[in-house]
């Protein structure tokens, strides 16, 4: 039992981290009233930037490379998401369509530039990915230490810490109150002097930053290179986590951890008694089936922010 936990928990944590980051981005965007189907594309962009930056600067930055890479991916993700913000907030285009276009654009651009710069469809493996470490002090606690804090990625704990920060920002600050107000009832918020457009831009750009971060963490912990198949569906799974977590940062984190667990089980299940008999397909589709059930109200009703998906038009009633 102990051995099983020791193999499952770190794997689950490491599969969850990118989902947590990206799902938190989705929470910010949707809470401000902008649907973000483009999370997948933002992750692709983050993965691309993270890998390319890492390959380019590994010689200069040494051991700091992965950290600077994910910061670069965060910044580029934020800038890239402005396209979605301009289209869906200022130009009032259908937010879902704009998100679909973001997904296509990110993948097209990423692979195009990869071929242009490296002359082939996928980059080389990075020399400076994230490595697993033992967390000092905590890893020495008996039982808990070896399961949770030995051979883990620091990024997993960064994701959990950021989830708590996101919760604090959304629920304990006036900025968070305003962001949520804009997503629930933009007209009332506008009447109270809140700049709806500005808040929504911030929501979308935060989702770009966190999506970029999530994509780069995925690339630098799990795959180590970039190609068209680096990010396949993780963004949509993060979107599922947003909904399954009921648009709440800690809920989204919990959902992402759970989905990460399901993914990790599909990887390590062969070595686990009982689970070895469960066909892998059930673990693969579990996140999506559960999300549909949650939406249908079988697992506690999931309700979207009221104004999510509706462009705000000043003066319209």
């Amino acid at each position: 039992m102990f051995d099983i936990l020791q193999s499952i928990v770190p794997t689950a944590l490491f599969y969850s981290a990118p989902l947590i980051f990206t799902a938190l981005g989705g929470v910010f965007s949707e809470r401000s009233g902008v649907v973000n189907i483009g999370l997948e594309g933002l992750m692709v962009m983050g993965a691309f930037v993270g890998i390319v930056f890492n390959l380019t600067f590994a010689d200069v930055l040494g051991a700091w490379t992965p950290w600077v890479s994910i910061i670069a991916a965060t910044v580029v993700g934020a800038i890239f998401s402005i396209v979605h913000a301009v289209a869906s907030i200022t130009f009032r285009s259908d937010q879902t369509i704009s998100g679909v276009a973001i997904n296509m654009l990110a993948l097209g651009l990423g692979v195009y530039l990869t071929k242009l710069w490296y002359g082939k469809g996928q980059t080389d493996m990075v020399q400076q990915p994230f490595y697993t470490t033992d967390i000092p002090l905590l890893s020495e606690i008996p039982i808990i230490g070896p399961i949770f804090f030995q051979g883990v990625y620091v990024t997993s704990y960064l994701a959990i810490i950021i989830a708590f920060i996101a919760w604090y920002v959304l629920y304990k600050t006036s900025f968070g109150l305003r962001l949520r107000a804009v997503g629930e009832h933009p007209m009332a918020a506008d009447t109270n002097g809140i700049n709806v457009y500005k808040m929504r831009y911030i929501g979308v750009i935060l989702s770009g930053a966190l999506g970029g971060l999530g994509g780069s963490v995925f690339a630098l912990t799990i795959v180590s290179n970039f190609s068209h198949s680096t990010i396949v569906g993780q963004g949509f799974m993060a979107l599922a986590a947003v909904i399954f977590g009921k648009w709440h940062p800690l809920g989204a984190m919990g959902a992402a951890l759970f989905f990460g667990l399901a993914q990790s089980l599909s990887v390590v299940s062969a070595g686990v008694p009982l689970l070895a008999d469960v066909p892998q397909v059930y673990l693969l589709i579990a996140p999506y089936v559960l999300t549909i059930l949650a939406l249908a109200g079988f697992i506690g009703r999931a309700e979207a922010p009221k104004a999510s998906g509706i462009p705000y038009i000043k003066g319209n009633r």
Binding site: A87, R92, S93, M104, G108, Y112
Partner: peptide, 19 residues
């Protein structure tokens, strides 16, 4: 992939052209 970029941009233009 240039074509994928072009198609994505066409979607943006059509979607945003409502304004």
């Amino acid at each position: 992939e240039l074509v994928d970029i072009i198609i994505a941009l066409i979607i943006f233009f059509v979607a945003s052209s409502y304004i």
